[in-house]
Amino acid sequence: MQDIIERNITVKAPKERVYSAIADPTQVTTWFPDAVEGKYEVGEQPIFDFGTEGKSRIYIVDAKPFEYFSYRWVAGETGVVDDVTKVANTLVEFMIEEMGGETKVTVKESGFSAYAADVAQEKFDMNSGGWEYMMNRLEKSLTD
């Protein structure tokens, strides 16, 4: 796959705590959206409200306490679409693992290649170095 972004962080907290921070609508708002509108449950399409940065509808795909949570949305864009599953979207997955008394949280966002041409219009930047960066990235994703 050529279109995955993966980031992780290690926290000093049990996995149950981390899972709640992601999967509990009253807790997710402390670090991610300002507010959640609608049912924050698997199969539902609530809206993440990012305040002045806009709103984005998400479709909650899966939730497995205390290790996995995933949703689909339109990445890099804020905008409320009627149905996330009917437009080009990316899958965001949170993976939680306990490792030696700490907890590793990995977030993986994938599906950028499925983007429709009208989404994610980006500006051109004439700086060089783009190639090398892109090739390293592609090589890495291909060997993963």
């Binding site: 972004i5 980031r7 980006e122 700086n127 170095g129 783009g130 190639w131 960066y133």
Partner: peptide, 16 residues
């Protein structure tokens, strides 16, 4: 066309 890749690079960097 190297300029094309800067657009992709910028997009990915921002998401990261």
């Amino acid at each position: 066309e190297p300029a094309t890749f800067d657009a992709a690079k910028e997009f990915i960097l921002n998401v990261e």
